[in-house]
Design a protein around this nucleic acid. Structure first.
Lengths: 195, 195
DNA sequence: TACTTAATCTAGCAACGCTATAATAGATGC
DNA sequence: GCATCTATTATAGCGTTGCTAGATTAAGTA
């Protein structure tokens, strides 16, 4: 078989894969994850259901792929916020970027954290996208504290809690900016102390 | 119809209701919420499916009842931790109690927060169990700060983030005590500052 | 053009939440 | 004690879900 043909097939495959992921995200954001069914996705890409299983193995495989894409985007967003010179401290910019990300794509955030997908974490098999995203938190406290990892975990947990309680309407979204300010204050004090 | 008969019927009804909730909790903790099906629950209490619908209206109704029971227990646990005189500050005791609750009943915690049930929050229709639980956080900062509600929200969010990231294996459970200590430090500094 | 392999679809299984309707049990009147 | 009426419970089935075996079509090779 000619190489060009194999290449074209691979391109087609990847394009369809991207189509599926894109359709899943779109439907999820508009109608919720419960409306992202295998039949619906098959309809959207004008293929039959088994094609989806050839690509992702299962419905959960599709969601996992969406989640991984989400972690990639989150990592990029956080890195940009950390590096860019703008008003406020890096911690503040990262915190704002994180909550902005979660608020603007709630279904994506849900796939990443709330749907209990079996995406390995904190171990050797952890996807690089995940590790990169968490690295952005680590970098914030690198060298400035005795326990950068601990502070990174704490900041991440706090932001995740805020994002999740807001997404599920446990906290009103109105005071979010105030909360970010308070959070940043908390973490600046800690920096002074443990340094 | 005699009153005694009506009373007995009511008792039976409530007993069966409790049985259903109990079975749901047990199965969820042992095998996950996906295994809590209406058919399975009907089997467990030796009744047919429609009986469940007479009690709770839907599968989600069962989960909501479990969640409400969970909020009641959480509220009690937090109040005890706040009031009891033991080592450490009230904030520390409440934080420990919260994470202990989440860790010891992960499926219950999942029902309360992660399964997106339509339990109203922060409005007039909010169940009293919910309000009581959140009050325990408020009380911690009552009078000691300019913004007790904001600090309560922040502490809750931080604890929720820690609990959730730990439950979904995003954070290793090993360092949890260390994290509580760090968290308590963060909030004591803020107290001094905003006082 | 004939053959082979890869890609895709059709059709169907088991399990799900839920419900209309039939069957049964319990309480009430005589 | 028997018949009647009401409330309770069960049976059976609908539509939808995730998933898959087997038939079918298309594509590449000789």
């Amino acid at each position: 078989m000619t190489n060009r043909i194999a290449e074209r097939k691979l391109r087609d495959k990847q394009a369809r894969r991207a189509q599926i992921i894109s359709a899943a995200r779109r439907i999820a954001e508009l109608e919720g994850w419960s409306n992202v069914t295998v039949r619906r996705l098959a309809d959207e890409i004008s293929y039959s259901q088994p094609v989806l299983y050839a690509h992702f193995g299962s419905r959960e495989g599709v969601l996992a792929a969406v989640a991984t894409e989400g972690f990639q985007e989150l990592g990029q967003v956080l890195e940009k916020a950390r590096r860019r010179v703008k008003r406020g401290s890096p911690v503040e910019r990262v915190a704002e970027a994180y909550l902005e990300f979660a608020a603007s794509s709630p279904a994506l955030y849900e796939a990443m954290f709330s749907l209990s997908l079996s995406v390995p974490f904190g171990e050797a098999a952890t996807p690089s996208e995940l590790r990169f995203a968490f690295t952005q938190f680590m970098e914030l406290f690198h060298g400035q504290s005795s326990k950068p990892e601990l502070l990174a975990e704490m900041l991440w947990a706090s932001l995740h809690g805020l994002a999740e309680l807001t997404r599920t309407r446990r906290l009103p979204p109105s005071r979010q900016k105030e909360r970010v300010k308070a959070l940043v204050e908390l973490f600046s004090f800690s920096k002074e102390e443990t340094a």
